Simulated assay, not measured.
Amino acid sequence: MVLSVQVRRFLLSGVLATAVHFAVALAMIETAHAEPAIANAVAFTVATAFSYVINTLWSFGSSIDGRTLARFVTVQLLGVVLAAAVSGTVDWLGGHYIVGIICVPVFVTPVTYTLHRLWTYRPRVQT
Score class of each variant (00 low, 15 high):
12 L>R: 08
13 S>A: 15
35 E>N: 13
29 I>F: 09
119 W>V: 14
41 A>L: 14
89 T>N: 03
36 P>D: 00
84 A>M: 12
78 L>I: 13
118 L>R: 12
88 G>L: 09
41 A>F: 11
89 T>F: 11
86 V>L: 06
93 L>C: 13
101 I>E: 12
73 V>L: 15
18 T>P: 07
49 A>I: 07
123 P>Y: 07
37 A>F: 13
112 T>K: 06
31 T>C: 10
74 T>P: 00
37 A>N: 09
47 A>P: 08
26 L>R: 06
7 V>C: 06
17 A>K: 01
80 V>W: 08
40 N>I: 06
117 R>T: 05
48 T>Y: 02
32 A>V: 10
39 A>P: 10
117 R>F: 14
53 V>I: 14
19 A>G: 08
42 V>L: 07
117 R>E: 12
94 G>E: 12
50 F>N: 07
38 I>G: 04
103 C>K: 02
62 S>K: 05
33 H>W: 08
3 L>I: 13
21 H>M: 03
73 V>I: 15
54 I>A: 03
66 G>M: 06
103 C>Q: 00
62 S>M: 07
108 V>R: 04
52 Y>E: 03
111 V>W: 02
44 F>G: 02
107 F>E: 01
119 W>M: 09
32 A>L: 15
51 S>G: 15
10 F>C: 10
117 R>S: 13
50 F>P: 01
78 L>G: 15
93 L>D: 12
79 G>P: 01
77 L>N: 09
112 T>G: 12
28 M>I: 03
38 I>C: 09
42 V>Q: 00
92 W>F: 10
99 V>H: 05
55 N>W: 00
45 T>W: 05
35 E>L: 10
85 A>L: 15
105 P>R: 11
21 H>T: 01
76 Q>C: 04
23 A>N: 05
37 A>Y: 10
4 S>E: 06
34 A>V: 05
82 L>F: 11
72 F>I: 12
124 R>E: 06
17 A>M: 03
67 R>Y: 02
112 T>W: 10
6 Q>E: 12
2 V>Q: 10
96 H>I: 01
36 P>G: 01
74 T>K: 06
6 Q>D: 03
54 I>H: 01
63 S>T: 13
80 V>H: 07
28 M>S: 02
85 A>E: 09
89 T>W: 09
53 V>L: 13
108 V>P: 01
56 T>A: 11
25 A>R: 02
27 A>N: 10
20 V>R: 04
123 P>N: 11
112 T>I: 14
68 T>C: 12
81 V>N: 03
64 I>N: 08
51 S>W: 04
118 L>D: 04
100 G>N: 10
116 H>V: 08
